[in-house]
Design a protein around this nucleic acid. Structure first.
Length: 177
DNA sequence: AACGAGGTCAACCGCGCTTAC
DNA sequence: GGTAAGCGCGGTTGACCTCGT
């Protein structure tokens, strides 16, 4: 079995990143690009595991990140995508330029979950028919989603009604490809 | 001003998929 | 085809912040 990175690198730093560490990581990636994460820490002079570097870069240091609160349009898009895709945060993040999966996941768990829960109490009628994309190219079987309460159920709205035709087609194409 | 509860968000953990050998 | 290593993802944790009392 594969060893977790913490076992093979016991001297690794953990916890919050310092300004110096951030600078080293940024400098290295600006010079060499996002190459091999596993060898990056050593090459960049960081006492972190590759995973940690990757996470820090993707979720915080990347220059194209859009910081700040979510707009109403973004919020709406997240709800719609979550209805269709479930907890596939990376796929959802792919539809929101400048946003990360971690950011969306946090926002969902802290804001949108509650919001939709409130909406469900206002609209108790639960629709049962959900249009799902073909079950391929996705890590998790869509049948598993039966175990999860979808946001459409929370919101009392059906997917077909809440997804625009362009998004539906676009998503289907991206899933098939 | 002090304290506790609840909220937020960066970071870690472990699993599964992909790729190289 | 089997195995090991790398990578990416989703779930979870915990430190810090904010707000109400």
């Amino acid at each position: 079995m594969r060893k977790p990175c913490r076992e093979k690198m016991t001297e690794m730093t953990k916890g919050a990143w310092s300004i110096e560490e951030d600078k080293k990581l940024i400098d290295y990636i600006q010079k060499h690009g996002e190459g091999c994460w596993n060898s990056l820490p050593k090459a960049a002079g960081l006492r972190r595991c590759g995973k940690s570097c990757r996470l820090r870069w993707i979720n915080y240091l990347r220059p194209d990140l859009k910081r700040g609160s979510f707009g109403e349009d973004e919020e709406d898009l997240i709800i719609r995508l979550h209805t269709l895709l479930g907890n596939r945060w990376s796929l959802i993040a792919g539809r929101l330029p400048g946003r990360t999966d971690n950011e969306i996941k946090n926002y969902w768990n802290s804001h949108l979950k509650k919001k939709l829960l409130n909406m469900s109490t206002l609209h108790p009628n639960k629709p049962r028919e959900i249009n799902r994309p073909p079950n391929n190219k996705l890590g998790k079987d869509f049948n598993d989603m039966d175990d999860e309460v979808s946001s459409a159920d929370y919101a009392g709205i059906g997917v077909s009604s809440c997804l625009g035709p362009e998004l539906n087609l676009d998503l289907t194409l991206s899933i098939i490809s």
